[in-house]
């Protein structure tokens, strides 16, 4: 028990130290722009299909279940308001971030873990290239930028699939669907969604880098790093999401 809490404390301290190093690398040069762009390109190409495939069904399911629910009250026209609010505020940011954590987070952690296990990280350090600066920071910046971009795409996809299941499949009137679509959504919702995505993207990049650099052992350690990154980020995203929702509700936004 004692050794466990000591180890936990050690991990926390190491994370704070890691955070400081990352911050220092962010404000000071040299910056590896080419590497950052390469990682961004990779992330967009890798995440596009999983993120799209994960969010489109959610819009469809909201329409399917919501149409039945609102029909009981004869308020089918409100369906599109519910769909738009749910997607803009909640599902598009949260799900896009969860899928980015699953795809980008685990692949970044696995890549850094592999480099660590093979001794390539030490080799970088020997060549006086700071591994955090060269390996972690580009991934972090890429995650921060790519997640909101993907979220914009998923919002559109969610709305389109929601429309498809509401209008042709469930027989909701097309005109009233479009008329009520933006009735409950304000510009604030959009910014809140994008802000959440940036915050969650930061969490993905930081945790993936931290756990990847802490990989020990051989191949098992790499798998464990990738796995732990995903579970920890998903926990963080869902918990943070709840507190953001509460904060927004109490602010009355």
């Amino acid at each position: 028990m004692l050794s466990r809490s000591v180890r936990w404390f050690e991990a926390c301290a190491a994370f704070v130290e890691f955070l400081c190093v990352v911050l220092r690398c962010l404000v000071t040069g040299p910056r590896y722009l080419r590497e950052t762009l390469r990682v961004m390109d990779l992330l967009v190409r890798r995440c596009l299909i999983p993120v799209g495939l994960a969010v489109a069904p959610v819009g469809a399911v909201i329409s399917l279940q919501g149409a039945g629910l609102f029909r009981m009250f004869g308020a089918e026209s409100l369906l599109s308001s519910l769909l738009a609010t749910a997607i803009f505020r909640e599902y598009s940011p949260a799900l896009a971030s969860v899928m980015v954590a699953a795809q980008a987070g685990s692949s970044i952690a696995a890549r850094i873990g592999t480099m660590k296990v093979r001794g390539q990280i030490d080799a970088l350090a020997v060549m006086s290239v700071d591994p955090v600066r060269y390996v972690v920071v580009p991934g972090l910046i890429a995650c921060v930028i790519v997640t909101p971009l993907l979220s914009v795409l998923t919002t559109l996809l969610g709305l389109v699939s929601g429309w498809f299941f509401a209008v042709p499949v469930m027989g909701v009137d097309h005109g009233s669907f479009l008329a009520n679509l933006y009735a409950q959504v304000s510009l604030v919702d959009l910014w809140v969604g994008l802000g959440k995505c940036m915050a969650f993207g930061t969490a993905v990049g930081l945790i993936a880098g931290f756990l990847g650099l802490r990989t020990t052992g051989g191949a098992t350690g790499v798998g464990k790093a990738a796995n732990d990154t995903v579970t920890m980020t998903i926990v963080l995203i869902l918990v943070a999401d709840y507190f953001v929702s509460m904060l927004l509700l109490s602010l009355g936004v």
Partner: peptide, 26 residues
């Protein structure tokens, strides 16, 4: 592929099972 293969397998397992479950749920 060595250790890298393990990382790739883990990554694909997570992503593919999540996407398949969400799509199948629909």
């Amino acid at each position: 592929d060595g250790a890298e293969g393990v990382g790739v397998a883990t990554n694909r397992a997570i992503v593919h099972s999540a996407v398949l479950c969400i799509v199948l749920n629909m």
